[in-house]
Amino acid sequence: MDWKLDNNRPIWPQLSQQLARRIIAGVYPPGSRLPAVRELAAEAGVNPNTMQRALAQLEQEGLARADRTAGRLVTQDFAVLEAARLREAEAVIRDYFEAMSSLGYSRERAVELLKEEFQ
């Protein structure tokens, strides 16, 4: 999974979103330890302070929690994970409708096309 960063927007929200997606996708499984800030920062090619801020955001969302000995652990609270998954799904759906609308499809037509594709 590569980091995709858009320099036209603040970096840290993009980082925290992509970290969240990794957690939901199980790249970082529930209860596992997240890599150190410095490691993640180097991997994404960003400043450690920026990565720190992104991780703090994850903590605020409840997806990760700081552990005195082991750095940061991914949450094991499946309700939280499920909620995050749903949030991301909603974002994907929103994007879909936006993209379809820009192609000139109405919402109804977009839903129909989706159903046809599914069959």
């Binding site: 960063l5 320099n7 970096i11 994404a44 090619g45 960003v46 400043n47 302070n49 920026t50």
Partner: peptide, 8 residues
């Protein structure tokens, strides 16, 4: 553009 991602 090469460095801006790492800057504070």
């Amino acid at each position: 553009s090469d460095v801006e991602k790492v800057l504070d």
